[in-house]
């Protein structure tokens, strides 16, 4: 049902797009119609694929590392009160700086390769994961903690068996948000400076007025982001199986 609804939404959007092109008579190098983009997609399939793989790797690596780092910082903040007092302001300050403004610096420091894009994705992902997971860890039902205390549980056992599982729904929300924003980090990183990836390919096509190719790359990014989001969403639903929809 969900897939069916998604297909209808996509078909509707493509229909509106086609209608706009037909009614306004806008030139194809400003806004190509869906048909033209489909042809461009087909003609450049090989290049789209090879650049797409690069972007996908950057997104996945960023998502993976960003989630691990975010989870680790949330766990250390909940475990060590003194660390929390130092780390929390740093986190807030880090969010006050627009991450996109850092992109040129990251390219300067980490080079034109994948590393700067992965770092960019990590920077974007880190905060929503940390914030959501930390919040979940903090809001464990105090009655569970009291029960565990009467059962003579050590703090680490309480963290492992009660606090962390209890925070999983919040963690899952954080990871969902992270998954939605991860592609932004990778593509922005590619725009600032790179020699491969879909972001680079879009700039490359833009410079040659190949607007249809740009749209084809954009479509591929959207498809990748959607597939990734729904896969992660499914995985998270499985992990927090006890939570009702």
């Amino acid at each position: 049902m969900r897939v069916f609804r998604l297909l209808i939404i996509c078909a509707g959007l493509i229909g509106i797009w086609q209608a706009v092109v037909m009614i306004t008579g806008v030139p194809y190098y400003i806004l190509p119609g869906p048909g033209r983009v489909a042809i461009a997609f087909n003609e450049n399939l090989g290049r789209l694929f090879s650049h797409g793989v690069i972007t996908l790797i950057e997104i996945l690596a960023g998502l993976f590392l960003g989630t691990i780092l975010g989870a680790a910082s949330a766990l250390s903040m909940i475990s060590f009160g003194s660390l929390r007092r130092w780390l929390l302001p740093v986190l807030v300050i880090s969010q006050a700086i627009p991450v996109f403004a850092l992109a040129p610096l990251l390219v300067l420091w980490l080079g034109y390769g994948m590393m700067s894009k992965i770092a960019m994705a990590i920077l974007i992902i880190f905060f929503p994961v940390t914030a959501a997971f930390y919040d979940g860890l903090r809001r464990t039902d105090p009655d569970w903690i009291e029960l565990a205390g009467i059962m003579n549980a050590k703090p680490f056992a309480v963290l492992r068996h009660i606090r962390i599982p209890a925070a999983m729904p919040a963690f899952a929300s954080g990871v969902r948000v992270a998954t939605a924003v991860a592609p932004i980090g990778a593509v922005v990183g590619e725009w600032v400076g790179s020699s491969e990836g879909l972001g680079f390919y879009m700039l490359h096509a833009n410079a040659r007025m190949q607007t249809d190719v740009m749209f084809a790359a954009l479509a591929l990014i959207a498809i990748m982001a959607l597939v990734l989001y729904f896969s992660v969403d499914r995985l998270m639903t499985k992990i927090v199986f006890w939570q009702k929809e």
Binding site: D143, W144, E146, M151, H161, I162, P165, V240, Q243
Partner: peptide, 25 residues
């Protein structure tokens, strides 16, 4: 302690919940 709320952990099975004290220790 047995409270008004059952305080069962939703991610554990019945057996695992009954053995919660052992699990924690």
């Amino acid at each position: 302690l047995m409270a008004q709320k059952d305080l069962l952990l939703p991610w554990l099975t019945v057996t695992e919940n009954i053995l919660l004290g052992d699990r924690l220790r």
